[in-house]
Write a protein that binds this DNA or RNA. Sequence first.
DNA 1: TCTCTTCTGGGTATATATACCTAGAGGAAA
DNA 2: TTTCCTCTAGGTATATATACCCAGAAGAGA
Lengths: 222, 222
Amino acid sequence: MESGNAYYTILLADDHALIRHGIRNLISNNPALKVVGEVGDGEQLLEFLKTTQPDLLILDISMPKLTGIEAVSRVKKNYPDVKILMLTMHKNKQYFYHAMSAGADGYLMKEDSDEELLLAIKRIQDGKSYLSPFLSQDFADDVISAYRNNRSSPFETLTKREREVLNLVVEGHTSKVMGDILCLSPRTIDHHRANLLRKFDMKNSVDLVNFAVRNGFVTPSD
Amino acid sequence: MESGNAYYTILLADDHALIRHGIRNLISNNPALKVVGEVGDGEQLLEFLKTTQPDLLILDISMPKLTGIEAVSRVKKNYPDVKILMLTMHKNKQYFYHAMSAGADGYLMKEDSDEELLLAIKRIQDGKSYLSPFLSQDFADDVISAYRNNRSSPFETLTKREREVLNLVVEGHTSKVMGDILCLSPRTIDHHRANLLRKFDMKNSVDLVNFAVRNGFVTPSD
DNA sequence: TCTCTTCTGGGTATATATACCTAGAGGAAA
DNA sequence: TTTCCTCTAGGTATATATACCCAGAAGAGA
């Protein structure tokens, strides 16, 4: 990175080319900003960062091969100077909390206007954080109290097996079928699913699926 | 509508302002096209059409207050001259079939490039139909055979009650709770849910939820 | 070594969902 | 009227999920 760079450099990460190009167009209206790259999934993102670190990464939650949240953790660990603006379509308390814990600097909704996008970039550029007005009012109190209670996010503690089972639950399999797929007893599947329900504080698999899909833990099954 | 209009007029319907503006920017690169309006939900869409009918409606599937598919039916019924380009993030056989049955003229994915967007507009402008390259190869055969067999789409036959129950199923409620909400016996809920499973050929509620969300029957619960 | 966590899987019990069946009330259409 | 569909709701049976209990094996780390 050139320290004397005149531009504020931005990398776009979103699996939808149309949306990437649309945002690039919006950003290009501001001559002080420069989009230095676009990537469509998590692998491309990590590959890109090996050679070039932008000032700001605009990151969609629902990316293939690496969920947005995991991407935040990885990027912040390896490149702590890269700021991250999360872009999401979902209003969700838990997800916002999750994104903040992982190290995101800003949180923008796709419902927001393009003026909000530029405002978010400006605030992060100035070393501040940004929260979508769709969320700030409703959730600020919850977030603050959560931090005060020093509660650790459940998102960090999902084990490998639990992630595997979660993906199969989303696909609508029964314990027996999941056991066959993973070569495990259906009782073990039950155990992992029960842990998932407990960790996310959900009461049944439908809620679990909604939650997991909304929060980018899994890609909705096609 | 002025018959001597020099522009090809376009209306954007998507609940995400950022995406709307991004697409508007992309379209504005072509001087022959003119975006005459933007709406964020189904109510606004119907309201807008009362006064102005564009040549082309670019319509996202996951809109509040009126699902994309229902919107297609309504628009085509009242304004048969308005062409419709569906814009979706989901690759899905059944949904594509559904959209075609409802009268969509084109089917574009958000994964497609902006060049594809302009190509899609051009083809529809020329009176042809358009299908995203993401789908054309995989699904063309299925679609053709489905039409040959003259199979009727199950999507048209959902009753009002079934839609209500479907929405509650997506929210993860039990039969008892749904019965309380709708003031019905849980057994009646069971009956409607069983009909939904049968009509969509699904085996359990998780599959039903995935299917319904993917296909725009319901908005994923927040 | 001791401790902790994960992964494994069984016992037991209850709750819920799913798959069949039946059947009456009401509305719409032929 | 007759027919068809929807909505209602119950009977019965099985399948599955969920919530507790238990415990041993394996690995990581202090």
